[in-house]
Simulated scan of single mutants.
Amino acid sequence: MSNAPLFSLDPASFAADPYPILARMRHEAPIAYVPELDATLLTRRDDIHREEKRIEVFSSRQPDGLMTRLMGENMMRKDGADHQAERRALFPALSPRTVAQHWAPVFEASARRILADLAPRGSCDLVTDYAMPVSASALIAITGLAEMSCTEMDRVSQHMIDGCANYTGDAGVEARCHAATALIDSHIDRAFASPAPMSALAVQQEAGLPMDSLRANIKLVISGGQNEPRDAIAGIAWALLTHPDQLQRIRRGQNSWQEAFAEYARWISPIGMSPRIVAREDQVGAVRFDPGDRVFLMFSSAGRDEAHFDRPEDFDITRDTAAAIPFGAGPHFCAGAAAARCLITQVALPLLFESLPGLRLTGPVPFRGWAFRGPTAMPVAW
């Protein structure tokens, strides 16, 4: 087992707000074993950026890991040639060109329809009434699971990521995750005979992927493609509404929606970490790792590393975010990054502020989570 120093934390406090604890870890124990999570956490940006790429040591393949046991062995839980083969099979559905030419008009049509229904109401919960259906509609199109409702998509994604972060072994969380994956499989079965063109289902079929890989990768796309864009859309809107001077910079053309997204993903990472398993004995600095050790690469901590970011706890869309790694930095760089950027920065945010004049917060906006983090409610009016 790793000889990393011990760092104990309260899981409830960590879920409520991980950033003060991560700041302490960067300062006191940047590589530390946390018994409550049964994992060794890497919290400094340079360590994460370097070690993530050493897949021969810090492997993504985790046959006994939560994601594999609950969702199947998807491409994110494979390394080397196996990972690249499945990534290439999925790429035609998620490439920047496909996103720009095929998906962007679909995203815009859905967002405009949702906003047209919302506008007469004068108020809503921006998480559940806008960010959720915008994200879900996009994901239904990309996956090809055309009969799934937005509510179903949001629910199965949440229950899967809850399952993948269920390090305390809650039986109810695991049961909900199993129900979610069964529902997804039923939708895959219904759509399999005539998948929508360019969908993740269609391109994997065309590539001839085995059915278990196809199913697992669809679940991966859902687990990484619903909650994170949903949370980023609502979270960025909240950040700009609570920093009106920065919203005005975007409206005046001094900064872009893309810069707001990049800064928000640095500041409050929708995906806070990536798990790895140590494949062979190795050492990082003075810390030794043994085969089988569980390691968490804390992307959320990397985004607030004082060695790279001045005033890292502040939201500032004018800063240089090049050192941030919210999508990862190695061979497992998020395959859906182009789709997420398009949906959030070209469609969801500009249309939101264009369509609902006078948009304002009307109540508190609670956040929760450390492995995945986002607002749980966002009351607004316009």
Rank of each mutant, 00 (worst) to 15 (best):
P133T: 11
I271D: 04
P197D: 13
Q204W: 07
C177K: 11
V99F: 05
P35A: 07
M298H: 00
R280A: 15
L343I: 04
S157R: 04
C342G: 02
P357I: 06
M67D: 01
A200W: 05
F315R: 09
L115Q: 05
T181S: 04
A119R: 15
H187P: 01
I55K: 03
A119K: 14
I317H: 08
V221L: 14
T143C: 13
E56L: 04
L66T: 01
V203H: 10
L209F: 06
S13Y: 00
H27L: 07
A175D: 13
D231S: 14
D125F: 02
P35W: 04
W238D: 09
R121K: 15
A191D: 07
P291D: 12
D245A: 15
V278K: 11
Q248T: 14
I142H: 06
D82G: 04
A260M: 08
L37F: 14
A93N: 07
R368L: 04
D117F: 04
V278E: 12
F296Q: 14
D314M: 11
E174K: 10
V99H: 09
S199R: 08
A100E: 14
A32F: 04
S256Q: 06
A340M: 04
D17E: 13
V106E: 13
S135Y: 04
I250D: 07
R251E: 14
A193K: 09
D320N: 15
T362D: 13
L349I: 03
Q248S: 14
T68P: 01
P18L: 08
D10I: 05
A12T: 12
A381I: 04
S13H: 02
D282W: 02
F91H: 13
S135A: 15
A4S: 11
V57P: 00
A191Q: 10
S194E: 13
F192T: 05
S59P: 11
W370G: 00
M148C: 09
L359H: 01
D154I: 00
N217P: 09
D282I: 00
V365R: 04
K53M: 09
I277D: 06
E51L: 15
A136L: 03
A32K: 05
L139R: 05
S355L: 01
A381S: 15
A324W: 12
I21R: 02
I161L: 12
L356A: 02
A193T: 13
N217S: 11
D162L: 01
A260G: 08
T321W: 08
A116M: 06
